[in-house]
Design a protein around this nucleic acid. Structure first.
Lengths: 129, 129
DNA sequence: TCAAGTACTAACATAAATGTAAGTTATGCG
DNA sequence: CGCATAACTTACATTTATGTTAGTACTTGA
């Protein structure tokens, strides 16, 4: 939970409320958000598949990141009243509008990341562990 | 100081080492980095001017952000052996190559930030305090 | 001599982000 | 009944990011 007042929070609000670049970064800057965005860019995914595709993230954190993106309007959550439950996540129009942003961030990284093969790697991070 | 090993660090390395988008975000994602980038985009600045233009950031944090950007190769630090000392910071070629990235992040924010006047605000954050 | 300016550093303190492990609800299946 | 599955939640623990305060070295100008 966040403090109601602190210099830290005040500065964050000051910046995100006045700097367009910082505002955008704030929405996409979580540890697992790029990976989530890249996955949903190809279409809706249910929670269990998202999770299986990201073995390194814990459930709590994955849910946290999804909830933040949902409350920021980047993704939507659709519950199917079945048993066992099914929940699908997908990009909203706002989320889809990030496409050029994602592409240019990816291109710059592909060009400059040490060890990059310059082939625009789309946040794999699905192996290991 | 960072731990030598922790899941947190491992995950960070896993992601930044495999996801181009995350790598880029990592370089520009610090609290004050967008503000610094926007300022240096107009040319070199000395430390004291940078600091005066950002009254809300403490010296320690400003230095930390500058040092990180320097070690990431985005800015360079030039010391003039004068009295009183003069230190100038400026974008490197790598830093300058971020221009389209910065522009698109700013444009998306200008378009979607609540309360935005859609006029591409360039990380002012120089008033207050 | 004393204050002021410059570009810091050090020691300390707090806030926020991320991670771990176990538990929950509901139902179908053998 | 007992186990499995899906999509979580809860309580707790750790790591990292950010912030505060005071102090440094050097020299010039009053």
């Amino acid at each position: 939970m966040r403090k109601q007042s602190s210099t830290n929070l005040e500065n964050e609000m000051l910046i995100n409320g006045n700097c367009d670049m910082a505002y955008t970064l704030d929405l996409i800057g979580g540890r697992w958000k790029p990976s989530i965005l890249w996955r949903l860019a190809y279409g809706a995914m249910r929670y269990s598949d998202l999770r299986r595709s990201l073995p390194a993230v814990s459930e709590r954190i994955l849910i946290l990141q999804l909830r933040e993106m949902e409350s920021d309007g980047l993704i939507s959550r659709k519950v199917y009243p079945e048993v066992p439950p099914r929940v699908e996540y997908q990009l909203t129009d706002l989320g889809k509008s990030l496409e050029p942003v994602i592409n240019i961030l990816t291109d710059w990284g592909a060009e400059n990341r040490p060890g990059s093969d310059k082939k625009r790697v789309r946040c794999p991070v699905l192996t290991i562990k």
